[in-house]
Design a protein around this nucleic acid. Sequence first.
DNA 1: CCAAGGTAAACGAACGATCGTTCATCGCGG
DNA 2: CCGCGATGAACGATCGTTCGTTTACCTTGG
Lengths: 231, 231
Amino acid sequence: MARPEARPGDQTRERILDCAEALFAERGLAGTAVRDIARECDLTAASLYNHFEGKQALYEAVLERGVRPLLDLLQTLSAESLDAAADDVIEAVMAHLGRHPRLPRLIQHETLTGGAYLSKLGRSWLRPLIEQGVSAMKVEPRSPWAEDEYPLVISAWLHLIFGHFTMAPVLGVVFDDDPLSAENLDRQTRFLRKLAHVMMKARGAEPDEFDASSPNPAELDVSSLKPEGRS
Amino acid sequence: MARPEARPGDQTRERILDCAEALFAERGLAGTAVRDIARECDLTAASLYNHFEGKQALYEAVLERGVRPLLDLLQTLSAESLDAAADDVIEAVMAHLGRHPRLPRLIQHETLTGGAYLSKLGRSWLRPLIEQGVSAMKVEPRSPWAEDEYPLVISAWLHLIFGHFTMAPVLGVVFDDDPLSAENLDRQTRFLRKLAHVMMKARGAEPDEFDASSPNPAELDVSSLKPEGRS
DNA sequence: CCAAGGTAAACGAACGATCGTTCATCGCGG
DNA sequence: CCGCGATGAACGATCGTTCGTTTACCTTGG
């Protein structure tokens, strides 16, 4: 049997990654000093260079280690059932992010600062996610959404799920309650499930009142769509 | 005659704020050097200290100048008609942010790094926004949402609108198209208007269909999150 | 009308602190 | 005894900020 934990080096490496992830998620790449990471895991800055080539390499290792499991999770979900119920995806993703609440912040930092890792992030992670979501929507097309709106719907879900984590600090101030507590995460998950039902299963109802079911909404003039004024 | 442009000082000050806003929104506070800001507006770092007390003061001035008009806009909207149609709010906010696309990024940076300005941001800006949204929802209660879900609904709209801007860089990579172009901003605005109709005007319908199929351990104390602090 | 004086703003130079990184050395387990 | 990993010291670069000086313009007294 290969001893699974016989390599203390990797153990140290993992510990460094943990501390770096915490600080990078909180302060971003530029706001985190190598010496701070070292101090956080009872090391010296020089020691980190025995395990990583430099600050940038450490940063990308943190991102890679964080993003990979999420990517795997989504692939697993789509493999099990292509028309995986939105419920299950929401449940699984929220549970995963609840266990790794720093990940959305890491990704949001990288997105905002537009680092070198951003294009890889978009192409190898977000693009398949969106494509997968779009094709899942095509399986069950009875929804108020036109096919060219599917990417917007999936992007909206990205915003809804990630926003709960990236906005958590300021929402915590507003509600005087931590949005990332187990209780509130569960609450948000149930809310998103309900929202999914409202969004997807909504009766076509009277879309005519609002949208003339034009297949090409690009030609509509926004200012002309004033469905109701106060009377 | 008082010459209207007899004060080049304020003009310079405004130019500094412009450059600082651009760099802070792109790289964050820690990632932006005072010398970079100075170079951007053809000045020397030393000159900036004739107009601002320091880097932190400049940063907060940028935030203040950016947030204030948005706050005013929302107050104006709620003043005109308390039950201001969600359509109008979406339209106005998206138009404003489209004209100031750096603002959501500034706020997101501040939220992520949790600077000193965050609590003021939450209390004086986001809190009234959410309270205003919640009370607007109470005016027209025919919607699938329970009253204790109103804060979640408003927060969701925050995520939907801000997300489009903060995620723009990575979404641009995915779709190979700038989400902040006039065309795509218009498209997103129309999408959000439609989503508002789907969310608000949807049949209250059968939540039983949803709750019954839910493997969720019943409804815990959903009323625990405080929609309003006072009691 | 001009000269003297005052003031705000821009600048080059420099400060100490901290940044990421390198390197020679040391300690310790296999 | 060998070798990996932790270390303190030190490097040049860059950070935010300060200082003394210069420049340009406005006011004011004669």
